[in-house]
Design a protein around this nucleic acid. Structure first.
Length: 269
DNA sequence: ACTATTTCCTGGATGC
DNA sequence: TGCATCCAGGAAATAG
């Protein structure tokens, strides 16, 4: 499931491969995502546009587009199973391909998403903003203030994109494990000392995951179709019943806010 | 203003 | 082997 490190990896790959390229034609399938902009509007905006830059904002990918009729942005959210691939036109069209952009270089940009939780949207240039703070950029004081007065479990707060943009279920569990904090703790109950552990834990786990090309748990691959490697370094997520790598206690799994949460009953307080 | 719950969607895993 | 059921989860919608 693409979270910040996976989206960052894909965006870097796309920046390397398609920045400077020009979209010459656009096909949108009959049953695409629930689009946030109309199919016609997306096709019209992409058609003829030069891809100036591809970058990540939260869990979103932003294509900055240069157009004769005014610059624009193509914003892609991959949801659970979305893939944005650069492929040769001859390649077979995978099931659940919802959009194909033909590039001047002769390649194709294909958006594939079986579960259709992804979202596509176009906007005028510079309109799109992250819904919350970037975890890798935010300063500690602003970070600490995000949780003040919040009764919701810290796990839910970390998943709330309006607070921090980019953290999903895997990296929330991994960050809380590293910080030694139980996922069900009320966000406001975290002491300053705990916040001072959580803040670098989030940044470390995200940076290590980016360095490993992300976590491939189910569907995630980068723009070249290659899987990430960080899943083998998970210490909590997906390890229910397995021994804690620190103390040996079996990792527990509980459901918080409808999401499975993995934690060590001994190391996390 | 918050918080919790439900809904969307398909493929893979599981159970009988 | 086949069929039904469950589960995964990001975020918007809905309910409290």
């Amino acid at each position: 499931m693409p979270e910040l490190p996976e989206v960052e990896t894909i965006a870097r790959g796309l920046q390397r491969q398609v920045a400077g390229d020009v979209i010459e034609s656009v096909w949108i399938g009959a049953k695409p995502e629930p689009l946030k902009s109309s199919a016609r509007e997306i096709a019209r905006t992409l058609d003829g546009a030069r891809i100036a830059q591809v970058r990540r904002v939260g869990k979103h990918m932003v294509f900055d587009l240069e157009r004769k009729n005014g610059n624009a942005q193509w914003i892609v959210h991959l949801g659970m199973t979305g893939r944005m691939l650069v492929i040769d036109p001859g390649a077979e069209i995978a099931k659940h391909t919802h959009l194909i952009a033909t590039l001047r270089s002769g390649r194709e940009l294909r958006f594939v998403d079986p579960r259709r939780f992804g979202r596509l949207e176009v906007r005028r240039a510079d309109e799109f903003q992250a819904p919350g703070q970037e975890p890798l950029d935010v300063g500690f004081e602003i970070f600490a203030r995000l949780f003040r007065g919040r009764k919701t479990p810290i796990k839910s707060a970390l998943l709330n994109q309006k607070l921090l943009a980019g953290i999903g279920n895997i990296y929330a569990d991994e960050s809380l494990f590293r910080a030694g904090i139980r996922p069900r703790r009320r966000a406001a109950s975290l002491t300053r000392a705990e916040l001072q552990r959580l803040y670098p834990a989030i940044q470390q786990v995200l940076n290590e995951a980016i360095a490993s090309g992300g976590s491939s748990v189910s569907d995630y691959v980068n723009a070249e179709g290659t899987e990430g490697l960080f899943q083998i370094q998970h210490r909590a997520y997906g390890r229910e019943g397995e021994p804690c790598l620190t103390c040996g206690s079996p990792i527990k799994r509980t459901v918080i806010a409808g999401r499975s949460s993995h934690w060590c009953p001994n190391c996390q307080k």
